[in-house]
Amino acid sequence: MKNKNYPFYFTIAALALYSVFVVLPGFMGIAYSFTDWNSYSTEVNFVGLDNFRIIFSGAENYTDYILNTLFFSITTIVLKTLIGLGLALLLSSGVRRFAHLYRTIIYLPVVLPTIAVGLIFRSILNPRTGILNEFFRAVGLDSLAQGWLVNPDIAMLSIIGVDTWKGVGYIMVILLAGLQTIPQEYYEAAQIDGASSFDRLRFITLPLLMPAITVVTVLNLLYGLRVFDIVYVLTGGGPGYTTDVVFTAVFDEFSKGRYGVGTALSSVLFIFMTVISFFIVRRLTRNPVEA
């Protein structure tokens, strides 16, 4: 902001577009969450906190959806970061031949449309005809053949598995870029001092990779809290309500014509995400010397 090379009015057009198409609808959404806006009536009346009372009352399953969303977010953050880091380490120093080919293959799922991935995995994970269970049965491991997307105990884990498969390439690329900024001399010096591989990972790689890890955590968190498409296409929130997340519930409310409750639910998530993002961005922008 201290850069005065360009006058302020250069930003006006961008700010105006951003305000009209992003900020204003955001605030309108919050305003509508205090109303009974619905598809059955042209009148919109102020109802105070009624919609929020419905969400947190526990009479409907909204608290379960919020917990499911948090579970999904935290689990995918951990899995994607750990697997992404492992792959990045492997491809930056472990694998020498065809490293670029492997990177491309691992990144490929990221560019596939979620709907296509979902439909493919629905077919792969079908308990009777899916190739995963067919494979287990063919090699005599019948007990491992599961109702991946229809067993309430494992359906959410299956979604997390598919989402991790799809998203890990993206995380790997960011971490790979982070790894390549670490000077080789540090490792050589540590090696001369007798540091083991694990010591080098713990005392050199991880501390210097922290900014990249923070970035992927924020990205994963924001993605996880907003998750909708992969859940919708794999299970539609089912079986029953076991894999419903906040945005499948918002979608459901809108399709039922209860726009007020739908906007209230997304407002809750908006506030939660804003607070979390505020703290993470503060952590990110903190002076590295202080950190």
């Binding site: 009974d36 619905n38 598809s39 409907e60 089912g238 079986p239 029953g240 309500y241 209860r258």
Partner: peptide
Amino acid sequence: TAMFIGDMEPLDVLMSIDERRAQMAQA
């Protein structure tokens, strides 16, 4: 489906239908 997997009882299903009817009727 929730009833099939044991997350809801048959009576819960009926109550849930009543609840949604009331919401729609009020809207």
